[in-house]
Amino acid sequence: MSTATPARRSAVPPPPRPPVKVYPGAVFPESSIFMIGYYPLTIEPHAVVHPRVRFTTLHGPVRIGPGAIISEKSMIGVQYTEQKQQKQQQQQPEQIPPATRTTVPGQGQGQAQEQGESSEGEKSQARKVESVTLERGVIIEPGAYVEAELVREGTVIEAGAKIGRGCHIGRFCKICPYITIPPGENLPDYTVVYGNGEGERRIDHAGATEPGLDELRLRMSSVHVNLLKKLVQVPPKKG
């Protein structure tokens, strides 16, 4: 009778899908990219998105600039709201035994005030839009996690690096693998972050002083993009 019964569907509503605008000339294998969110996702011309990239636009729009390269398994966009992250952090110190805490007189009042502030803060944060913008020629390597508000042109973020929310990364910076940039940092132009954890920083003086090097770097990435446009395949859909 009912031979063509569809596969059992989950009762959970599907995650929200962002409105996507892909400009002509961009490589965007849509079937193999994870997208979640309400705000728009914009892929500008000549940007290359490899398969298995995860875009989150739950808390703000995401804009991928022209000629940017986003590698596999990287995550772009703010994942959690700030209050959720703060709650997670607040839960940790509560595990500390009470003896180690310092008592402050009038703590009750302070707490009440704090609570009032936080509830107001939550309201304002609920409206706060946390966008992510990657400018021209930005290269994101595999497994990087970018929540930064702005990554300026020509910057390279290497494998597994984590860029916190609200960061402003300057032009032609280089973030080495597995570096963590804490939220809200401003990196000046031509910064190189290397080493372990939050890493050490230096300024790439060659880039800063040599005239014409920026154009050469951008030209190299545009040549790379032209090649990728011919090569990147869309993975087949698996049944």
């Binding site: 398969p51 298995r52 596999e72 398994k73 090649l227 990728l228 011919k230 090569l231 990147v232 395949q233």
Partner: peptide, 10 residues
Amino acid sequence: ACLRGDLHRL
């Protein structure tokens, strides 16, 4: 696991 054979020499 991801193997990128599509990125080959033209």
